[in-house]
Simulated scan of single mutants.
Amino acid sequence: MSTRHGDDYPPAPDNADLWAIARKADGETVTTGRYPVMRVNGTWGVRSTLELTVSGIEHRMEKAADGTRTAYMLHPDGSWARATAPGKRELPIVHQGGPRRLWDELDRIRTWLVIDGTLPVAGAAVSIDQDGTCHLSRNGWSATVSAQQVSVEARSRS
Rank of each mutant, 00 (worst) to 15 (best):
E105Y: 03
G27H: 00
D8I: 07
T29L: 09
P36D: 08
P76F: 08
I128E: 15
D26P: 06
I115F: 02
W141F: 07
V152E: 10
T49K: 01
C134G: 09
T144H: 04
L52P: 03
T133D: 12
A16R: 06
R110V: 03
I128G: 08
I21M: 03
R155L: 13
W103T: 01
E105S: 09
R47S: 06
P86W: 14
R34F: 04
D17Q: 08
G45H: 02
T68V: 12
H59L: 12
N41Y: 01
A12M: 10
A124H: 15
R138C: 06
Q130K: 11
Q130G: 06
A143I: 00
D7Y: 11
A64K: 15
L91H: 06
I128M: 12
D66I: 08
A85M: 14
G98A: 08
T111M: 06
H75A: 14
L18C: 03
T31Y: 04
D66L: 14
E58W: 06
R39K: 10
V40I: 10
A71L: 11
R34C: 04
M1H: 09
Q130C: 05
R23I: 00
V37M: 04
A85D: 06
A65E: 15
G117A: 07
P76Q: 10
P10Q: 10
R34K: 14
S127L: 11
A22T: 00
A65V: 13
H5T: 15
V152F: 06
G45S: 07
M61Y: 15
K24M: 03
G56I: 06
L106H: 04
Q149L: 12
G67H: 09
I21P: 01
V150P: 03
R100S: 14
V37W: 04
S79Q: 04
D7S: 12
T49M: 04
D8K: 10
D8C: 09
M61R: 09
A122G: 12
H5R: 15
P13T: 11
G27W: 00
T29I: 10
A65H: 09
S158K: 12
D14T: 11
R157W: 11
G33F: 05
I93V: 15
E62T: 13
I21A: 01
A85C: 10
V46N: 01
L136Y: 12
N139S: 14
P92F: 06
G42V: 02
T53M: 12
L52C: 11
A125C: 10
S79V: 02
A125S: 14
A147V: 02
R34T: 13
R47C: 04
A154Q: 06
T111C: 07
V54P: 05
H5K: 14
G78S: 14
S2C: 05
D107P: 01
S146T: 00
H95F: 07
N15D: 13
M38S: 06
R60Q: 15
E58N: 08
L74G: 01
S127I: 12
S142G: 05
T84M: 03
Y72Q: 14
D104W: 02
I128Y: 06
G97S: 13
V114R: 02
I93L: 14
S79W: 07
P11T: 07
T43W: 03
M73N: 08
K63Q: 15
T49R: 01
K24T: 15
D104R: 05
D131A: 08
G132V: 07
R69A: 12
L18D: 00
T84K: 01
V46T: 04
K24H: 03
L113F: 05
G27R: 00
A65M: 12
G87R: 13
A143T: 01
Q130I: 08
V40P: 00
D77Y: 09
